[in-house]
Design a protein around this nucleic acid. Structure first.
Lengths: 156, 156
DNA sequence: TGACAATAGGTGTTGTAACACTTATCATCC
DNA sequence: GGATGATAAGTGTTACAACACCTATTGTCA
């Protein structure tokens, strides 16, 4: 018998609906995964949102991206990008410079240190992901990815 | 063509692996769902962790549960239960009383107001869940729930 | 039975998230 | 070409999360 979510959270009554069970399962599973991911990142002195920014900037042009562009590409909502970038700048991971054409814009780009940190952590990240989904198999992974996409499409 | 995660976050390069894509999909999807859920709860003056506590206490004996028991049943890690319960007590949603048998224990239980709030919000919660997973169908929901359980089992 | 570990709860402090508000710069259009 | 709205960024403030540390009570075992 599989251990079910109800056992894990010691809930006596059955769930109200399949939808509820799916929602709670998503929250719990993602919570566990991100907790483990953050713990792994901690050794490198970055948080998950910061790591997210680093990855976004790695795929960006060398002159960087403006704050709102980064914000819009984040995996999760992040209302206070300014101070998140402040902290990363303080840690030497990114740099900023005001655009001369449009002086409203401030472009943020990776420093060498930020890029180096990404390289350092790359293998660990890959290990982490492999470990989390070990034994699932490509077919079920693809099915999961597809269902998640579908949920996001429906839930606008 | 479906909109994919790569489009949503405007990522140019393909994902490193299926595992990574699944992980990022989980984080983004769950983030969107919980954001919407929290926005719905906000009208009632409670946060998601607080709502979680209310539900845990509804299924508990009338004399309530001790802090660590509640913490262990939470969906996600919550290292500062004391002050979460402080706030809920301040809002009149729960009450606490020290156990006479074992004076280390403090039992927390629902107030009438807390129970009333759960009743008030119940329909909205059900609507919310239905809306989020509309059009998925029971079969895919069951498959999703099963995959999530499997991921949690593997990723210890 | 008295020392000591284990358990339950709380506190102090720091950093971060969230939200509303403000400032600076640019685009538009009469 | 100057008023006005739109866009980008930053700030002030409050509440919350996270972590390490502390206190009180109970169990246990020499």
């Amino acid at each position: 018998m599989n251990e079910t979510l109800r056992d894990e959270i010691r809930q006596k009554r059955p769930f109200d609906s399949l939808e509820q069970e799916a929602f709670l399962g998503l929250v719990r599973t993602t919570g566990l995964l991100t907790d483990q991911f953050e713990r792994m990142l901690k050794a490198y002195g970055v948080t998950f949102p910061q790591y997210n920014v680093l990855r976004i900037l790695r795929g960006a042009p060398r002159e960087g991206l403006c704050r709102n562009e980064i914000r819009d590409r984040m995996l999760t909502r992040m209302p206070d990008m300014t101070r998140l970038l402040d902290r990363m700048e303080g840690a030497g991971l990114v740099s900023r410079s005001r655009d001369d054409e449009d002086r409203r814009l401030v472009r943020t780009y990776l420093t060498d240190e930020g890029r180096r940190l990404l390289d350092q952590v790359a293998d660990k990240v890959a290990d982490e992901h492999r470990a989390r989904f070990r034994g699932l198999g490509d077919e079920r992974l693809r099915a999961l990815i597809e269902v998640l996409t579908e949920i996001r499409r429906e839930s606008v």
